[in-house]
């Protein structure tokens, strides 16, 4: 049986007549749908705040690679955490303000 005969034989089957167009539609359809969702992914990945963009407005922004957890931790190390006092609130018999305030230093 030649290839053409085989093709003729299978083409009469329902799985071929309906299955192949269905599979083609599924694969081609995903490419078609891609056109619709393209816009969304194009803009979702857009990072609006960039050093280049900020430069236009005359603001210097550090490069993304320069601001890391490690570099920020180095800065945090300089915060004096040894000298602090446990500030207490007023006792009932002490002079008490009517409003709770957080007094600025």
């Amino acid at each position: 049986m030649s290839l053409v005969d085989k093709l003729n034989y299978y083409s009469t089957r329902k799985s071929f007549k309906y299955g192949i167009p269905f599979l083609i539609m599924m694969v081609a359809g995903s490419f078609g749908l891609q056109q619709f969702s393209n816009l969304r992914y194009q803009y979702a990945k857009k990072q609006p705040v960039t050093p280049e963009e900020m430069k236009k407005y005359g603001v210097s922004m550090k490069n993304r690679k320069d601001v890391t957890l490690e570099s920020e931790y180095d800065k945090v190390k300089s915060v004096d955490i040894e000298n602090w006092e446990n500030k207490r609130g007023p006792r009932p018999w002490e002079e008490q303000e009517d409003q709770p305030t957080t007094a600025k230093h």
Partner: peptide
């Protein structure tokens, strides 16, 4: 970057130079 203090938060925009401020609650009065 947000640093907690007794009793306010101080903020720092690490990507920019010199943007730091303290954020206190506004007292009721």
């Amino acid at each position: 970057k947000s640093i907690g203090h007794q009793w306010y938060w101080s903020y720092e925009y690490s990507d920019f130079n010199n943007i730091e401020f303290d954020s206190y609650m506004i007292p009721t009065n």
